[in-house]
Design a binder for these strands. Structure first.
Length: 237
DNA sequence: AACACGGGCAACCGCTGTCTT
DNA sequence: GAAGACAGCGGTTGCCCGTGT
């Protein structure tokens, strides 16, 4: 059978967080580090669901968050990343230090979407609104390789259904394998004064050659934890 | 001053893949 | 292997506040 429920929904608070709740959460995480959201509310003396605590911490309380307006550079980067990744806000956020997926999602829906519309660009497809509907696909082809080379392999015809390719010329998102973002993959000792990482990726996982239950490190396939590609290792120009 | 409206954003909801028992 | 919880994600909701009438 499965595990016991994460929290008793009948005894959890909902709605806006109070200052006291924030302080309790911050104090607890400072002391014990992130993780184990299931047991955190009880341990921290909070009448909240672990899920709610996680959200509050990630989106609002984390010390490395960059508050305030988005810069033009960030705007541009979000637009470019969205054109390539779609509504993968967590992946987009990973490329913008100090910004959260929720923040970017909200910003997209309230500002950028409108900005693109006013320019006559469909925010969903990143193509001119008045352009006829067609099947668009993002190309990851490097350099001057013709888009048709990619398109022809899937459609096999040069008729009306030919795959269109599109890319941001100044944004290089080619995948490269590199040691993953280390900071997130550390577990710290309960005492902050002695805070030394207890576990790091083993060499095999860092190289992406192992994914076994016997391995006690935190790395998933390619050292990506839970098998998710770490887009922080992508390069942008 | 009172009300209506819309924008912005924090928080919730529901789903999915993964992990644990 | 099955059942069920966990963690994380994207979509949506609802509240708050500023602005216009």
């Amino acid at each position: 059978m499965g595990r016991s429920p994460c929290c008793e929904k009948a005894h959890t608070n909902k709605g806006a967080w109070t200052k006291e709740e924030d302080e309790r959460l911050i104090a607890y995480i400072k002391m014990h580090g992130e993780g184990c959201w299931r047991s955190l509310p009880k341990a921290a003396g909070l009448l909240r669901c672990g899920k709610s605590c996680r959200l509050r911490w990630i989106n609002y309380l984390r010390p490395d968050l960059k508050r305030g307006n988005f810069t033009e550079e960030e705007d541009d980067l979000i637009i470019k990343l969205h054109s390539l990744l779609g509504n993968k806000w967590s992946l987009i956020a990973a490329r913008l230090p100090g910004r959260t997926d929720n923040e970017i999602k909200n910003y997209w829906n309230t500002h950028i979407r409108r900005k693109l519309m006013s320019r006559g660009i469909d925010p969903a497809t990143h193509r001119p609104i008045h352009e006829p509907q067609s099947t668009a696909a993002v190309s990851f082809v490097k350099g001057d390789q013709k888009a048709a080379e990619v398109g022809s392999s899937s459609s096999g015809s040069s008729g009306g259904d030919e795959m269109l390719t599109w890319r941001c010329p100044d944004l290089n998102l080619e995948l490269c394998i590199s040691p993953p973002f280390q900071k997130q993959l550390q577990i710290f000792d309960a005492e902050p004064a002695k805070s030394e990482p207890l576990m790091r990726l083993c060499f095999s996982c860092r190289l992406g050659v192992k994914k076994s239950s016997a391995c006690s490190c935190l790395g998933g396939f390619l050292g990506l934890g839970r098998g998710i590609l770490d887009y922080r290792s992508l390069e942008t120009n």
